[in-house]
Amino acid sequence: MITIIDYGAGNLRSVLNAFARLGYATKLAKTPQEVLNAGVVILPGVGAAAHTMDSLRKAGLDKAIRSYIAEDRHFLGICIGMQILLTGTEEGGWHQCLDIVPGKVKRFSGCLKVPHMGWNQVKQKKAHPIFEGIPDEADFYFVHSYYTDPDDKSAVAAETTYGSPFCSAIIKGNMIATQFHPEKSGEIGLKVYDNFIKIATGNKTGKI
């Protein structure tokens, strides 16, 4: 079963709707055990990283996510669900995050409008089945004020330019994360979710 972590994220419903549209059954996980028992885990998110970390810690979900990913099981993080994978974030002062991907989450600087809000191109830096059927530099929907800067550049799976290029997708083993919102990126966004489920299930049906 596709398990979506429910810690009160604002985009939870949109993510559920996207998987429903693709015809996949999903269930919500609110406890560490539900995460550890899952076959496929999705961590949605939008808003503030520190607030998200607080919510996850209170529910004991931070440790569960760390253990789950440490076993190289199939995981997809979206927006804040990507940012909290890093060591820490500069958002609202320094906040420690999950430290699964060494690196920092930094604020856009210079004379840019922040949030970075709207459709922007995703330049694929790795050939990977998550991009199956998706043209290079396709437009995806972004809304965020901070971006990830992984220390290990080999983890950067895609880049997007806002002022200068930043990391818009991370892939490390079976862990995939996107800064953009596939559930808000039209049919091409749904394709990313579909690809992820096909990778995770190793078959074309998405059934687990």
């Binding site: 419903r13 709707n17 996207a18 549209r21 929907y141 559930e183 808000k184 990126s185 039209g186």
Partner: peptide, 8 residues
């Protein structure tokens, strides 16, 4: 609407 359209 949110069940049908996948944009903001």
């Amino acid at each position: 609407i949110s069940e049908k359209v996948f944009m903001p």
